[in-house]
Amino acid sequence: MFELIGIPPQALFGQMLLGLINGAFYAVLSLGLALIFGLLNVINFTHGAQYMLGAYVAWLLLNFLGINYWLALVLAPVVVGAFGILLERLMLRKLYHLDHLYGLLLTFGLALIIEGVFRNLYGISGQSYPVPPVLTGGYNLGFMFLPLYRGWVVFVSLVVCLGTWLVIEKTKLGSYLRAGTENPTLVQAFGINVPRMITLTYGFGVGLAALAGVLAAPIYQVKPTMGADMIIVVFAVVVIGGMGSIMGSVVTGFMLGLLEGLTKVFYPEASNTVIFVVMAVVLLIKPAGLFGKAS
């Protein structure tokens, strides 16, 4: 049997697949972030907290109302998305005319508050969310055991990412959105309600974060810090992909998941750092990101 730098191929395939699975989370989360940044020019630091909210809403629905995973998959993003819309209407909107920094500070502060509230309510160790019965178990692929649920996560992520991309690139609504990004005043002059479009986009981006949260609930603990753990990596993904680039963030999400997976085999100690090393290198060589347009 051939080996690659001392690692048998089975192990390598397994690790690459795992990397892709993690990449799926990065992709969905960074997609939402990129969307929001593209249209609102807001660096949404509450994204991690909204991801956590998604997981908690699913958990609350299950434990207090007996609503199962499948309904939660739809309900949680709607609930959290609505919360996002409220946030945009009441707070974010007032900051658009100011520097980026104000939006960042507001969302960062909100993230801390939301996380603090949940920490206070539910403690730090988190709650367990069971894998839905249909998706328990898994397949033996020969080179690794693939839990069914993880396969499902990749599938959903791909569908969502592709769907969002299609809507934005190929539909009329998408063309409004893109035009709104370029020149909101002109688009408004054509009779399109840009502020409402912005609100809905923010709601959708937040909904995506919540969806990722529901997807993550059965894999990781549902805990208040789950978003904070994730958000930094996801920001790095968005920066590498190019701020505001939809396709860039999706492709980079999967790519970096893969890279991180491989690092865990060859040099596990660096697996937390590798993404940031890549970010530093990309920023030095191509400051606008891999898929970004230099302004």
Partner: peptide
């Protein structure tokens, strides 16, 4: 043994190594 970063969310990769 394998040294994982602290804190660590995803153990799948390390568990696979342990399995191997």
């Amino acid at each position: 043994s394998v040294r994982h970063p602290f804190p660590c969310n995803d153990f799948s990769s390390f568990l696979l190594q342990a399995q191997a």
